[in-house]
Nucleic acid binder design. Sequence first.
DNA 1: TGAATATATAATAATATACTTATACAATGA
DNA 2: TCATTGTATAAGTATATTATTATATATTCA
Lengths: 117, 117
Amino acid sequence: MITNETVELDVAANILKVLGDKTRLAMVKIVSENECCVCEFVDLFDMSQPAVSQHLRKLRDSGIVKERRKGQWIYYSLNPSYPYHSFVLQIIKNLPSQHYRIEELEAQGKRVTCCDE
Amino acid sequence: MITNETVELDVAANILKVLGDKTRLAMVKIVSENECCVCEFVDLFDMSQPAVSQHLRKLRDSGIVKERRKGQWIYYSLNPSYPYHSFVLQIIKNLPSQHYRIEELEAQGKRVTCCDE
DNA sequence: TGAATATATAATAATATACTTATACAATGA
DNA sequence: TCATTGTATAAGTATATTATTATATATTCA
């Protein structure tokens, strides 16, 4: 749901800066559709694990996404308690779904098993 | 008016990167409400003329804003023919109005006279 | 407890960004 | 035509960003 609250200029600029990177924008769209863990991003983006971690840290530090540890894995998802969550949703809603990427991972057997809990 | 067209990920990331700067985001919000020329931005942001010009160039090169020469002055405004115009509108619609800034300029007599044409 | 796996962090290097100063270009008006 | 004003561009510099490599931390399991 999209509300009509105004977002201060500098807050908005910071959010847009964090989202203004192709990798991070894709990450945000992906976690808005599927909870996802670090090693899956490594596969999805064909990128080193530290590089992925550092992008995720920016997203986490800003508050846009949150993490949830499950055993050895840390799952990332959109953070609905983020004060500017609806602003983020509004931005990503017109991005093409990235669900097909998750399906490709599954087809390759690379999706982390998380069917418990 | 906001349409529901999807915006490719890398296109969106580039737009967000351009808007992910406080000065440029303010510029875009301002020109969405008032056509504005370079020297006015210099006053508004208390910033050097070349710095302003370089920000405007990024906005112009991306297609987000357009320019119109009027005598010695060059006026900037949102570019409604930009293919992703509605995406930009959607982003800036929740930013606080910057019209008061223009009114302050007017009160100080610093608004460029553009009452002709 | 120790090895294996998942993730985070630190240090570093390459590149990008956003200013500054100096200068060029364009339009106006005496 | 020349001085003035508004704007753009070029060159240089300081800082920020994003990757890499190396290492640390955390969890699981034998």
